[in-house]
Computed example of a mutant assay.
Amino acid sequence: MTKAAKTIQKIAGKDPISAAIVLGSGLSAVGDLLEDKVTIPYSELKGFPGGGVSGHGRDLLIGQMGGKRIAILTGREHYYEHGNAAAMRPALEAMAELGAETLLLTNSAGSLDERYRPGDLMLISDHINYAGMNPLIGEPTDRRFVNMVDCYNPDLRDKAKAIGERLGFAVGEGIYLWYSGPSFETIAEIQMAIRLGANAVGMSTAPEVILGRFLGMKVWACSSITNMGAGLSNEKISHEHTKTMAVQGAEKLKRLIPALVEEL
């Protein structure tokens, strides 16, 4: 067992977790829903995200949600921070060692599709790794050849769509294009992404999906739409704008995620 997993067990107890949730920019309010919460700063956990990005938390939360014991990572590390696509591997390995069979990922993303407007949620049905990097580069075993068909679990997507309908808001799905960042996309790049078949674009998530499947977890991911892509509206795209608009999606995720956890 990794040093990080041992530290978590020492602080939060050895009862296994059912799932791990990773929160994206401006979505930390989801962590407030945990009951009997134990908070562990990333700085105490070897290999967990370091400096971080504004709008992302820097704590691991362990507690109860939807009748399950789960872990919430209140922030992630991004490829654009240091050029390491495998930055989240130690944290996700620790989650798997603690018993997580399901990985729930969230992010803030720009829409390329008029059906998805700021404030909407879009389940990710598949992704395009436009950044081209892979977190399994350097993995020496044949486990690196991960099958990515249905990497975004269809059953979990169907459950989330049904839950959204029950809660009174639409939860559609689409293809996410991973762009490395940290600069936002140009108008020409957005037009290229549309022609490639993408419905949303963002700077995270795809590496974690690959790692989650590598670790044998079921993976689900949802984008909180914060803006339209460059050239698709008159809004001024910025990180501050992303954090502000993510609050709208966070309110929906605060209702969707606990209901989904109940059905795991």
Score class of each variant (00 low, 15 high):
Ala246Trp: 04
Met148Asp: 02
Thr102Cys: 13
Glu262Gln: 12
Val149Phe: 13
Gly202Ile: 11
Val171Thr: 06
Thr141Leu: 08
Glu173Arg: 07
Arg195Asp: 12
His82Gln: 15
Lys252Ser: 04
Asn107Phe: 07
Lys159Pro: 05
Gly55Lys: 13
Met228Phe: 13
Ala109Met: 11
Pro41Met: 07
Arg115Pro: 02
Met133Pro: 01
Leu34Trp: 03
Ala160Ile: 00
Gly57Leu: 08
Leu121Ser: 06
Ala160Pro: 00
Ala198Cys: 07
Met217Gly: 07
Ala259Arg: 15
Ala198Gln: 07
Arg255Thr: 14
Pro41His: 03
Lys46Ile: 10
Leu196Ala: 15
Arg195Lys: 12
Thr106Tyr: 08
Leu256Met: 08
Leu34Ser: 04
Met203Gln: 14
Ser54Gln: 13
Arg143Glu: 09
Asp126Gln: 06
Ala71Phe: 03
Ile190His: 00
Cys222Ser: 05
Ala246His: 10
Pro140Arg: 04
Pro154Cys: 09
Ala200Val: 06
Leu256Asn: 02
Arg76Gln: 03
Gly212Thr: 09
Thr244Glu: 14
Gly55Ala: 08
Arg115Trp: 04
Ala160Met: 00
Glu185Ser: 01
Gly67Ser: 13
Asp15Arg: 12
Gly26Phe: 02
Met95Ala: 15
Asp120Arg: 05
Glu263Cys: 03
Phe169Asn: 11
Gly231Tyr: 00
